[in-house]
Design a binder for these strands. Structure first.
Lengths: 359, 359
DNA sequence: AGAAAGCGGGAATGCGCTTTCCCAGACAGG
DNA sequence: CCTGTCTGGGAAAGCGCATTCCCGCTTTCT
């Protein structure tokens, strides 16, 4: 037994499909009371559920919002996803999820898939890459996005614009002040620490990571401090752990034979998850935080707030970011300003906690 | 400029739409080499993207998998979602996300929305409720699911079957041995602790919580121990924290004037997030784990593994659960056994760590 | 060599719904 | 009383694609 159709409902109610459509699925023209009632009864006596595909085809709009993340299980993206979901609900739309692991090629495919489904808008939450080897894929991604926009789609990307995307109508970038905040973190840290700094960064070319590194170095420079050493690794817990191991060796003075004794370090991991990984490694090596090393992260992931020692970090309104990005793609939101179009201002907050309290 | 259509491609290639369709979107009949090539060239010179809505309408199948969770930012659901996402990719489908906060009424709406979009299958990850006030909504949910299945939809629910859902074709339940595992945890805990036990549970009627509570009590009984006291609260970190506060008072002997001195406790929180909340509360009250109280959770949430003291818990293969549930809805997976249909066996593992090492 | 079978391609129909366009009747004004 | 303007309902034309027929052609078997 197939689902019942509008036509069946119409027949049962003794009206034309046109009329049935008008009463059941909001139209400008409102049929008379009596008729409306008859149709409505027929509809739910049949358990009628409109076929969204057909509706979409006819109206050419689907009520879908595409969301692109690296990994939905990463708490950073999960938090953003929650915001997106909320905003989607406000707009009475559903969200289509795509996880890409951050590969521009996969992101391009996701955009194409969203376009195929005629998603009304697309939110790209993943961080951009400017690496040499991603150049080509990025260009294709940009082209795909352009095409999508030109066909009336709206897209919002959080963080950086997609490399090479020329911005036609409906292309929004939600800037996240990674650099400024990292700078602010650095200066606050510098105020309470006069030893060396070291940064655990993601792979070069990962824009989010690069920004935070750059901002941190700037902040250090502003405080009259020497630039921090940089350890590049994966942008996840495993990377943080690995880097932590190396740093532990360094701190314990095993790093190179030249030093007799290790040196304390203030570590800045470009995101919380990496910071936690690094902290775990240090602990595994018998070092204590903040006694032997202090450490700070970035994002203020909710699930990690109970971590001990409490992690210094930069609070980012992740959920809000998801919400704003999604709202930016809502047709109504266009009202602001067609030109200029000042982007919503995202702000974060340096949050110093126990992990960076020098003993 | 609207997206180009199959007809346009066909015209450019000088063939009929039928032929173009056959070469571009996998069909049984394969047109000749030369023609195929011409069509393909025309297609990407036009940047043709098939309209999935139209395809869906024509084939009546959408390539969509609906996923229902309580909250995508909850690491438990995020982990499952990752598994679902993976399996979806295997099946070359996309996942539609719906978050419901656990309310049966919302879940019903989500199912209806998925049905409207003609989702090929639905995975329900949220825990079921058997509360009095949800009775009615549950019935409606069940009705909605039934209808969906009868129209050829396939659904998988993890944990418990939806209350009152009669199982027609295509209704799968992925059983999670919450009770057994909680029992196993209890007996292992009982082996190393001879004091009192207390359970921090979710609201009554939350089946997942109830199962774990029941299992734990059974395990205790099996070990010849008195049943644990039960503290009901919200099924999240806040609830855990609140309960933790109460327990702290109890342990410190402030609970009631009758006791001179507090008593140590072995706490079982029905999920990791609650356990972390409780632990945070105890610490805030100046108590130490495992010195003043030991504590165990359930789920073995990945992000929480670096928590100190390391949390004893029961490892659940969350990602695998998502994967299996999704695969269970794949048409091919029906092959197993139409009758009986032995459900995939999910297994967990009691994982004792530092948080329950009695001093 | 003639007929039957096979094969590659096109015309046409329909999936379920929205939306324009049209039409009959109601009503008001001249 | 006739004409002009509304108003509410129906007929029909797509939306973009898959698919069933159907047709003319080349093969293969007797």
């Amino acid at each position: 037994m197939a689902a019942s159709t509008l036509t069946e409902v119409a027949r049962l109610a003794g009206v034309s499909p046109a009329t049935a459509s008008r009463v059941l699925n909001g139209s400008a023209r409102k049929p008379g009371q009596d008729i409306a009632e008859r149709v409505r009864q027929a509809a739910d006596s049949l358990g009628y559920i409109p076929n969204a595909q057909a509706q979409g085809l006819a109206k050419s709009s689907s009520g879908l919002i595409g969301l692109i993340v690296h990994d939905i299980a990463d708490p950073y993206f999960a938090a953003i996803a929650r915001g997106v979901q909320e905003a989607a609900r406000e707009q009475r739309k559903m969200v289509l999820l795509a996880t890409t692991g951050g590969a521009p090629a996969e992101e391009k495919e996701a955009v194409a898939a969203f376009a195929a489904r005629r998603a009304d808008s697309i939110v790209i939450a993943g961080s951009r890459s400017s690496r040499e080897e991603d150049q080509e894929d990025n260009a294709e991604l940009a082209a795909e996005l352009d095409r999508y926009c030109r066909n009336g789609g709206r897209v919002a990307v959080v963080g950086h614009p997609v490399v090479g995307a020329t911005a036609p109508e409906g292309y929004h970038v939600l800037a996240v002040p990674n650099q400024e905040l990292a700078g602010a973190l650095a200066s606050e840290l510098a105020a309470g620490w006069d030893g060396d700094f070291v940064i655990i960064a993601g792979p070069e070319g990962l824009l989010t990571s690069d920004d935070r590194v750059q901002g941190f170095q700037d902040g250090l420079a502003g405080a009259g401090r020497a630039p921090a050493g940089i350890l590049r690794t994966q942008f996840n817990r495993a990377g943080g752990y690995e880097a932590g191991l190396k740093l532990a060796a360094h701190i314990k003075g095993e790093g190179d034979g030249t030093r007799e004794t290790g040196r304390k370090l203030c570590i800045f991991a470009v995101n919380d998850v990496m910071a936690i990984g690094a902290a775990a490694a240090l602990r595994a090596e018998g070092l204590r935080i903040p006694r032997d090393a202090t450490i700070a992260g970035f994002d203020d992931i909710e699930t990690l707030r109970d971590f001990r020692p409490a992690l210094s970090t930069v609070r980012l309104p992740l959920e809000e970011i998801g919400r704003l990005a999604t709202r930016a793609t809502a047709p109504a939101a266009e009202g602001h300003d067609s030109d200029g179009g000042l982007p919503q201002p995202i702000t974060g907050e340096v949050t110093l906690r126990r992990s960076t309290e020098a003993a």
